[in-house]
């Protein structure tokens, strides 16, 4: 009797849980899973939206084979990897330094945190437009100030060898505060007693950081790195506004490539195939980061 009552209670709890989850599942299905599934379906079809009465025609893996052979795809992917790797690495390093400096709870830190938030709250399109004007090598203020201190001006956006790194710098400027804020919150959760004990035992600031702070906050660093890496891989607005993918294809990235094929040329099937691969890679990358975090978390515990 007691056992059957417990089973009924457990079953009842499960039903209630599913009822509460149902709205979320429906919303996710409509806004995410169904479009994703349709995208996967279209990726195996030829579908040109700007042709009247056009219908998807099954072509197997042809779209996938086509983009793998496309040199512009290879270039875009390479640029994307460079962009994400360099910008995220810089943001993490500088963000961590800023977090260590501003983690003290004093008035100066609070003021500085407010100031460093400014790049974060500017919309990417606005930031891209502003920086495009500032980085102009003839009329921009950056080269003007460089020349005032006798440093030759740089062709930030007009030199194909430099343009990508210029956009990376702007991304770094915009998102380092975001990384810093998250890491500040994480540093503040470290019990003071750990730090005080270590100081009493004669630990130097570097040892404090390396032996105590870094290991404890490493799971957070991994998650922040994952979020930023995925965001950096999805970069579109900064590139679109600052360079349009040029000069030539020097700053083309996967999102601009997909936009071009899908929205400009209306090759929906082809664009879907690239998007499917993009999502799959991001999914795998996220999985790797989450696994790393779990390992690190266990180590910390």
């Amino acid at each position: 009797m007691l056992i059957s009552r417990n089973i009924r209670a457990t079953t009842g709890d499960k039903v209630v849980s599913w009822v509460f989850l149902l709205p979320v599942i429906i919303i996710l299905a409509v806004t995410a899973f169904i479009p994703l599934g349709y995208g996967v379906f279209l990726s195996f079809h030829k579908f040109q939206l700007n042709i009247p009465n056009s219908k998807p025609v099954f072509i197997g893996f042809s779209n996938y084979i086509e983009f793998m052979k496309d040199k512009l795809f290879i270039k875009s992917l390479t640029n994307n990897i460079i962009f994400a790797t360099i910008s995220v690495s810089m943001e993490l390093i500088v963000g961590l330094v800023v977090a260590m400096i501003l983690s003290e709870d004093n008035k100066m830190s609070r003021v500085m945190i407010t100031i460093i938030l400014i790049p974060m709250i500017i919309a990417p399109v606005v930031a891209g437009t502003l920086w495009r004007m500032m980085l102009d090598s003839t009329y921009g203020v950056v080269d003007y100030f460089l020349e005032l201190i006798h440093i030759p001006g740089v062709r930030w956006l007009s030199d194909p060898k430099i343009a990508l790194y210029s956009v990376i710098l702007v991304d770094f400027w915009k998102f380092t505060p975001y990384v810093a804020i998250l890491l500040i919150s994480s540093v503040k959760t470290i019990p003071r007693s750990f730090m005080d004990s270590a100081r009493v035992d004669g630990a130097s600031p570097w040892k404090l950081f390396y032996r105590i702070v870094l290991p404890i906050i490493s799971p957070v660093i991994i998650i922040v790195a994952m979020i930023r890496f995925i965001d950096a891989f999805k970069v579109f607005d900064l590139v679109f506004v600052m360079t349009g993918g040029g000069p030539g294809n020097a700053t083309e990235v996967l999102p601009t490539y997909i936009y071009r094929e899908g929205i400009k040329y209306f090759r929906i099937g082809f664009a879907s195939s690239v998007a499917v691969v993009f999502i799959t890679v991001m999914f795998l990358v996220s999985g790797i980061f989450i696994r790393l975090r779990t390992i690190q978390l266990n180590r910390v515990e």
Binding site: R132, T138, Y139, W156, S158
Partner: peptide, 15 residues
Amino acid sequence: DPAVSAWGIPEASAA
């Protein structure tokens, strides 16, 4: 001007 490969119509007209 070496900067032209980053210029749009407004910048070129202004120059």
